[in-house]
C-alpha cells in the first residue's frame, strides 16, 4: 500500500490508539487493518492463507469498529497476522474484503482485547480520509 497508508500511534493512559490516513474510505479500512498489526507489535511472515470477510454495521464509524474487531478475531483464532488486505466493496454500512494472513515473523508483544468506540473518528479531510481508533489492551 506504500504511501497510500500512513498511521501513527496515539497515547492513552492505560491503552493505546492509532491515527490512520489513506486516500479513499476503502484504502483507509485496509490501512486500519494493517495498523492493528503494527499496534500489536507484530510483523507478518509469508502469506499462507486468504479469507473472504464481510462486515455490516449501522453506520460508517460502527463499521470501522466492527471491521477491526473482525480482523482481531481472525488473527486470534488462527494465530496468524494480517499480511495484506484487498477491499473489494465498501459502503458506509458494509465492507467486503480479501484478507491475506501470515504466520507472524515477529509475534505480537501483547494481546489486544478489543477495538472500542472511545474517541472514534472517521472523517474526510481535504488531503484524504482519516480514522482514529483506540484499543483495549
Amino acid at each position: 500500500m506504500g504511501t497510500e497508508c500512513v498511521y501513527e500511534e496515539l497515547a492513552h493512559t492505560a491503552d493505546v490508539g492509532m491515527r490512520v490516513r489513506a486516500p479513499t474510505p476503502a484504502a483507509l479500512f485496509a490501512c486500519a487493518a494493517r495498523s492493528l498489526v503494527a499496534l500489536a507489535g507484530a510483523t507478518p511472515g509469508e502469506p499462507s492463507e486468504r479469507r473472504q470477510v464481510y462486515v455490516e454495521a449501522v453506520d460508517a464509524e460502527s463499521l470501522l469498529v466492527e471491521w477491526l474487531n473482525e480482523v482481531l478475531y481472525l488473527c486470534e483464532s488462527t494465530g496468524a497476522v494480517v499480511a495484506d488486505v484487498l477491499v473489494t466493496a465498501w459502503t458506509p454500512t458494509g465492507i467486503a474484503a480479501e484478507v491475506s494472513l501470515a504466520p507472524p515473523a515477529i509475534p505480537p508483544r501483547g494481546a489486544i482485547k478489543a477495538v472500542t468506540y472511545h474517541r472514534l473518528r472517521l472523517a474526510e479531510e481535504p488531503e484524504g480520509w482519516l480514522a482514529e481508533y483506540y484499543v483495549d489492551v
Binding site: A57, V58, E61, S62, V65, E66, N69, Y73, K113, A114, V115, T116, Y117, H118, L120, D136
Partner: peptide, 25 residues
C-alpha cells in the same frame, strides 16, 4: 473480551430502540 465486544455492538441499536441518548457510544 468477545462477550463485551458482542454486546457493545448489539447495544448500539438497543439504545435507539429504548430512546436512550448518551454522551459516549
Amino acid at each position: 473480551h468477545q462477550i463485551c465486544t458482542d454486546y457493545v455492538r448489539d447495544f448500539q441499536q438497543v439504545v435507539q430502540r429504548y430512546g436512550i441518548s448518551l454522551p459516549d457510544r
